[in-house]
């Protein structure tokens, strides 16, 4: 998690960007969070996070948590909005490690009582996850729309 010194106390909304900005479209989450940082959302705490499991420390007590991530898909840049507490989240085949993914973090949060009251996931389907690659153009084009929709959810 890219939390650094001097973070403020918990607010009612958590906006979390998942992903690695140095891995092509995997940087979608951090890119949306960077865009959201320029908007005035006084209720929201914003973090960029590399390990979904770390969200378990940040979710409890939140009215709303929105996670922004990239997803494997067929149509680059297509934006998906999911409410995993209502409809579940597809669990991809083991994607690393040491890696417990977002779906596992949500399942763990459920059994340990660490989920926010409401959880929304925005995921953009990605095309290129190569090391060092930038966002592909269609994924980059989805950043603005995702940020606008997320800001509206926060204010709503």
């Amino acid at each position: 998690m890219s939390t650094s010194w001097g973070s403020s106390g918990p607010r009612s909304v958590l906006l979390a960007g998942l992903g690695n900005p140095d891995r092509g479209d995997d940087g979608f989450g951090p890119a949306v969070l960077a865009r959201l940082a320029r908007l005035s959302l006084p209720e929201a705490e914003r973090i960029v996070c590399a390990r979904p499991l770390d969200l378990l420390d940040r979710w409890p007590g939140r009215r709303l948590a929105i996670v922004v991530d990239a997803a494997m898909g067929e149509e680059p840049g297509r934006l998906r909005r999911l409410e995993p507490l209502c409809q579940g989240l597809p669990r991809p085949t083991a994607c690393s490690t040491h890696g417990l993914g977002l779906a596992e973090a949500i399942d763990l949060g459920r059994s340990l009582g660490l989920l926010p009251a409401r959880l929304i996931v925005y995921a953009a389907e990605g095309l290129d996850f190569s090391p060092g690659a930038p966002l592909s153009p269609r994924v980059a084009a989805a950043v603005e729309e995702a940020a606008a929709r997320i800001a509206a959810e926060c204010r709503g």
Partner: peptide, 9 residues
């Protein structure tokens, strides 16, 4: 790690 390293990863 966060305190001495500035961030966890």
């Amino acid at each position: 790690l966060r305190l001495l390293g500035g961030r966890e990863i």
